[in-house]
Design a binder for these strands. Structure first.
Lengths: 204, 204
DNA sequence: AGAAATTACAACCACCTAGTTGGAAACTGG
DNA sequence: CCAGTTTCCAACTAGGTGGTTGTAATTTCT
C-alpha cells in the first residue's frame, strides 16, 4: 500500500493561500507566521523551507496576487465607454474580493517604492496601457497611464477606506451602486475628454 | 531658583509628535513603543500614563492628524473650477506632507470600519459637503459626498502608491506635475457634469 | 533491499515587545 | 519647612516572535 504520499505542491499552495489571507487582513508587520501555519494546517518550519522567511513569503503572496491584478479584468471594446465599462467591472471585482486592493495598499505603505516582481508587473502594466491606447486611438502613453492610475485609485481606494464612505455618504441601501455609478461617470468623462483632445490636437 | 519646572504639555506634545511620525511610517502593528519614547526623548512609561496604551495612542494620533485633514485645505470660490482648484491644492498638500494620506490608509487597513473620533470627523465631513454644495448650487448631498470621495481617493492614493505611478508612467522629471494636472482635470470634468445636471434636472 | 535524499514536525531558542513597578526628584499648599 | 501630590525614570516581567534543530517517517535511486 502507499501510506499517504507527500504532496509538496499542495502544501505550498495551502501555505500561500493562508499567507494571502493573513497578509491581506493584517499586513506584513501584523501577520503572524504561527497563525499562517496553523491556518494552513502545516508545520511552520515548512514556510522557511519553501519560502525562506516572512518577507519572502510576503513577496510570494504579492507576486501571486498582484502580478495578475490587471489581467483578471480585461479592457474590452473601444471608445470612452469601454474604459468606463472597464472601471465598473474592476470596481465590482474589488467589491466582491478586496484582496488585491488591500495587498496593493499594504505594499505601498510598508514597502514604499521597493517593488517586487518588477518584470512581470511592468509587462502587465504596459499591456494595460496598450489596451487603453487601442481603446482611445491617438491618446498619448502618458495620458493612458494617468487614466489607468485614476481608475485604479478610484476602484481600489473604496474597499480600503470604508470609513470615508460612511462619513461622507452615510450608508444607505444602494450606497455601493451609487458609488459605482460615480466612479464610472468620472472615468467616462475623463476618457471622453482625452479621446476628444486626441482627435483635435491643437484646438483652443 | 526654579530647577527646571516640569512641562507635561510639552512632554505630551513631544510624544504625540514622535508617535505621529512612527505610526505614519510603520502603521499600528509595525510601530514600536520604545522607538516612540526614544524619539521623543521621554521615558515610555509616560505614554501609558498620558495615553493609556498603544491603541489609544494611535487613536490620539489619528484624531489629531485626521480630524482636521479636511480643514487644512479649504474650498474657495464657486463653480467646477473651485472644486478642481481645491483638488489641486489638496494634491499639493499631500505631496509635500504625506502624513494624512498614510494615516488615513493605515486606519482603513488596520481598523476597518471602526472609526475613532466620530463626532468631530463627521462634522468636518459635513462641513466639506456643505462647502461643495455651496460651490455647485443644486447638486445633491449624495453627489457632493461622492465628488469629495473621488477627490480624496485621487489625491491621497498617489503618495501611498508610488510604485503604481512608477509602473504606469515610469517617472520623468515633470511626473508629479503631470499627475496633478490629470487629477485636476478629472475633478473639473466631474464637477462640471454635476453642476450642469443640477441646472437641467430632467434632460435627456 | 539498502543508502541517500526529502518531507515532516515537535520542541527549542534568543530576542523583542507591550505593559508594570518601586522609588527618587520636583512641585504645591499650608 | 514639611506633608502630600505629581512627574519622571531605570529596571523588570510575562508572554509573544521569527527562526532553528534534532529526529523520525517517507520516498527515490541503484
Amino acid at each position: 500500500m502507499t501510506p499517504m504520499a507527500w504532496d509538496t505542491e499542495r502544501t505550498k499552495a495551502l501555505l500561500l493561500e493562508a499567507a494571502t489571507s493573513e497578509f491581506c487582513t493584517r499586513g506584513l508587520a501584523g501577520a503572524r507566521i504561527d497563525r499562517i501555519a496553523a491556518e494552513a494546517g502545516v508545520n511552520k518550519e515548512r514556510i522557511y523551507q519553501y519560502f525562506g522567511n516572512k518577507n519572502a513569503l510576503f513577496d510570494a503572496v504579492i507576486v501571486a496576487a498582484l502580478s495578475s491584478l490587471m489581467d483578471e479584468v480585461p479592457i474590452e471594446g473601444s471608445g470612452p465607454e469601454a474604459m468606463a465599462d472597464y472601471a465598473g467591472r474592476l470596481f465590482d471585482h474589488h467589491q466582491k474580493d478586496a484582496t488585491a486592493p488591500r495587498l496593493l495598499f499594504w505594499e505601498g505603505l510598508e514597502r514604499g517604492t521597493e517593488v517586487v516582481g518588477l518584470p512581470k508587473r511592468m509587462a502587465n502594466c504596459a499591456s494595460k496601457v496598450n489596451s487603453t491606447i487601442a481603446a482611445l486611438p491617438g491618446v498619448s502613453r502618458e495620458d493612458a497611464g494617468d487614466l489607468l492610475i485614476t481608475i485604479v485609485s478610484l476602484c481600489d481606494a473604496a474597499p480600503v477606506l470604508p470609513a470615508l464612505d460612511g462619513l461622507m455618504a452615510g450608508g444607505g441601501p444602494d450606497r455601493t451602486e451609487r458609488r459605482r455609478a460615480a466612479v464610472v461617470r468620472t472615468v467616462y468623462l475623463t476618457a471622453a475628454a482625452l479621446a476628444a483632445e486626441a482627435q483635435e490636437p491643437a484646438s483652443a
